[in-house]
Design a protein around this nucleic acid. Structure first.
Lengths: 223, 223
DNA sequence: CAATGAACGGAGTAAATCGATCCGTTTCGA
DNA sequence: TCGAAACGGATCGATTTACTCCGTTCATTG
């Protein structure tokens, strides 16, 4: 009992380490969104305002960093779905879920198939998937979501809207001045898609509903 | 006048060259769609079933190949818009235009900002843009397109739907067996978006209509 | 205040990739 | 049989990448 690990106040050096860790994860997401699968560790470190050495002290490998990012993102997925269920209005809940998840879904899709999936990640994915299913089911029962759109249709729509060539390319160049306009334009696209998702006597959707293989297979690290 | 260039039947070697040229352009589009801006000449040549040497005999540089691809694509844009205007039904015309253009729009967006734009390309872009404006205006006048959606909203929607993470990633791996399912899933997403575009008492779109800078700036080869 | 060690930043390294060239081979027509 | 034209791909220099190594900075401790 001699080791009094009293954490009265965090050592300033440790606090800096924590800030750096958060900055790295945020930077990884941002760079992944603009550079896609070719995001380089150098770009991530630079964006985080951190030396490459510090990145590798925290994560043994680039892959480990991305795995941690994916893990945390799945937590956000789940939280968003639970927040949607907490909304008393089934449609507002669904619409809020979609718009929330779109924000960070785009950063993740480039990772599909590049990472070994830990069992923890698979478990979190299953839990999040069930929560989303509940959100969609409630909207269906309330008659506010078009009946021929399945949960996977909704998830594919989210993934489709997650990446935005417009915003990404403008970000890759300097043009931060156009960010507001680009974001606004993107919001309009999302609004249009959501209007198409709402129950409103639309003609039936073509083809068969998508199967889950389309999701699952893509994330398996075949290579 | 001694050079009798009678083209009775094409020399078989020349015919092969023409086939190769078409194969190269098609391959360039496909590789650009799956690999994005990092599409390599080696990948394009391989996909076309052609040696790298043959590629460089026809195009002095990678850039020239992409410029030619862009040039031809603009012809297709224009043709699609004219076909839309030829359709007696304003909505079917617009919807057909959107679904047609989506097919190859995705291959082009990665080129934004990577190419010097020839004056010919700029001219073709202007002509195609006017044709699209006519298609949209006719749909507006007929009251079948939601009034708050502008021509640029429509074009941005096309660009957004042009790239499909699902289809691209499945293509990058072997999984050609899932192509049909992926294409069908994608068609449903497009149908949903089109339903959101149709006039049907939707709530008004948020923010201001997008301005043209969002398009123009992005294609300028700043670097 | 000197010494310790944890956290830092970034130059350096070996490997991989890319655009482009060069050249030996194949194919067709005269 | 010979020459020209089109072919495929090994090869090259330049660039990029993930990762290592090391000298520096800074709060704590005796």
């Amino acid at each position: 009992m001699s080791r009094m690990t009293v954490e009265r106040r965090k050592a300033p050096r440790q606090a800096e380490a924590e800030r750096n860790d958060r900055a790295l994860l945020e930077a990884a997401r941002a760079v992944l969104a603009t550079d896609g699968a070719h995001a380089s560790v150098a770009a991530i470190a630079k964006r985080a305002g951190v030396g490459i050495g510090s990145l590798y002290r925290r994560y043994p490998t680039k892959e480990a960093l991305f795995q941690r990012l994916l893990d945390l993102a799945l937590d956000q997925y789940l939280a968003a779905a639970e927040a949607a269920l907490a909304d008393p209005d089934p449609w507002n809940g669904l619409a809020g879920y979609v718009t929330t998840v779109i924000e960070f879904a785009g950063s993740l899709s480039p990772l599909a198939g590049m990472l070994p999936l830990t069992e923890e990640i698979r478990a979190k994915d299953r839990r999040a998937g069930e929560a989303v299913a509940a959100v969609v089911a409630r909207a269906h029962d309330a008659g506010v979501l078009r009946p021929d759109a399945t949960r996977l249709d909704v998830e594919l729509l989210i993934e489709q809207l997650g990446r935005s060539p417009l915003v990404e390319q403008l970000a890759k160049r300097g043009r931060g001045d156009l960010d507001a306009a680009a974001g606004s334009a993107r919001a309009r696209i999302i609004a249009i898609a959501l209007d198409g998702l709402r129950a409103a006597g639309h003609p039936p959707l073509p083809g068969d509903p998508p199967g889950y293989e389309l999701f699952a297979e893509r994330w398996e690290p075949a290579s």
